[in-house]
Design a protein around this nucleic acid. Structure first.
Lengths: 128, 128
DNA sequence: TTTCTAATTTGACACACGTCTATGCAGCAT
DNA sequence: ATGCTGCATAGACGTGTGTCAAATTAGAAA
């Protein structure tokens, strides 16, 4: 089932110019949905959305944890927890350089989710 | 703050041809993140992802609840609960016609989320 | 070594979430 | 009216999640 998930995630690339977004082409299988849900769950928190956004917008495409922590009125362990959730979902990656740990976005993961949600032809004609 | 949320959600349309995706342009404000998180939370469940997909792929762009319930090994109240979550998030809409209730996708909401996640220029150059 | 700082991990707590059974409501057909 | 069917709601139960304080690890500097 993890293999199915991977193939589903891959599809959005090979499929980038196809007729419609995966979500609108044919129904997700149970296995595909099980693999996709954790990605959206990782995005389903305002703190994590802001973290992702802060990292994406930071100079050089990466941000130190200390920069991120100072942007919230939350404790360091809480920020660390959210970063861990994002990383385990594959949305970000990190590296330790000396004293500091730097995080950056995984654009591939975001692109895949974006393509999945794009309701192009299938019901782009239904409304707008 | 709800006004902020709406403007954020609107941005992805006016912004469709702009330099980069909202997430990558400038950091989300706390209010924007608070407004966006519930949308991703609604997507953060495998059953709801399949429901959304089933509705989107159904003939005529809409599906009866009875069609949806039969696709899962879950009770009708559980399906009803998930449909309510999706509807309250604005991802689907519904109408009763006689005995049956029909659901359809709100493509605008999906398009906005899709645009938000698209990491175009900002870090499209970083990897691929 | 020791000390200091950056970041993570652990454990605990309150709250939210997914699922079920039981019940209620709306519409159609007797 | 009564009964039947499709769907939603209410309440309960177990599990998962976000947050914190406290403890731990990793590295730099003295």
């Amino acid at each position: 089932m993890s293999k199915k998930g991977l193939s589903l995630l891959d599809v959005s690339e090979a499929d980038a110019g196809a007729c419609c977004a995966p979500l609108a082409c044919e129904p997700l299988t149970a296995g595909e949905a099980e693999d996709l849900a954790p990605l959206f769950k990782a995005l389903a928190d305002p703190v994590r959305l802001r973290l992702l956004s802060l990292i994406a917008c930071h100079d050089g495409g990466e941000a130190c944890v200390c920069d991120l922590t100072s942007a919230f009125e939350l404790t360091a362990p809480t920020i660390s927890h959210h970063l861990k959730v994002l990383k385990q979902a594959g949305l970000i990656d990190s590296e330790r350089r000396g004293t500091w740990v730097y995080y950056w976005i995984n654009p591939t993961a975001l692109t895949r989710l974006s393509a999945l949600l794009r309701p192009r032809h299938a019901f782009g004609a239904v409304e707008g």
